[in-house]
């Protein structure tokens, strides 16, 4: 960050991170394709998850959060997931399991916070992530939802 010649501070460089949007769209696009038969496409409100999956009487919301993989998970991620969960629960009137798919760094505190809130985490690793493996992990959660109680991070690779 710097100052312009008149001394007014200017926020620079504020740029779009290369690959950030593409990874998010690639992951959500792949999941959308693989779960197209069980997706709920309808959208309501400002807080809308990337995917809402209804299967076997269960509802799973999937949110993909991607960014710089050397950075910790954004501190608002937990609240965002809970808002998404609440919104879908009120909308569909069913119990909902939130799933976070992310390439951010996740420490033990994040894991505990997410597990305490009932949020499942699936870690992916960049542009070369394995789409089939990720879909398999999501399937496992969707199939056994809501009885899955593992608190550990599910690695997609």
């Amino acid at each position: 960050m710097s100052k312009d010649p008149s001394g007014v501070p200017i926020a620079e460089p504020v740029t779009s991170g290369p690959g950030i949007v593409r990874l998010h769209e690639r992951v959500s696009g792949d999941l959308r394709k693989n779960f197209r038969e069980v997706l709920i496409e309808e959208r309501v409100g400002e807080f809308t998850p990337d995917l809402v999956i209804r299967h076997g009487g269960h509802v799973t919301v999937v949110e993909v959060k991607t960014g710089d993989p050397t950075m910790p998970l954004p501190s608002s991620a937990n609240v965002q997931m809970l808002i998404l969960k609440d919104g879908v629960r009120k909308w569909l009137g069913e119990e909902v399991v939130p799933v976070l798919v992310t390439n951010y760094r996740i420490d033990e505190a994040d894991q505990k916070e997410m597990a305490d809130s009932g949020i499942k985490i699936i870690a992916i690793q960049g542009l070369n992530y394995d789409s089939k493996s990720l879909s398999k992990k999501v399937s496992e959660i969707v199939e056994v939802n809501p009885s899955l109680s593992s608190n550990s991070i599910l690695e997609s690779e």
């Binding site: 460089p13 991170g17 950030i20 959060k65 991607t66 950075m71």
Partner: peptide, 20 residues
């Protein structure tokens, strides 16, 4: 130091700033 800009709903805008 890294700054990320988010939408009110918690989504990343993709805008990121770092000091020069």
């Amino acid at each position: 130091l890294t700054v990320q800009l988010f939408e009110d709903n918690g989504r990343e805008t993709g805008m990121e700033g770092k000091p020069v």
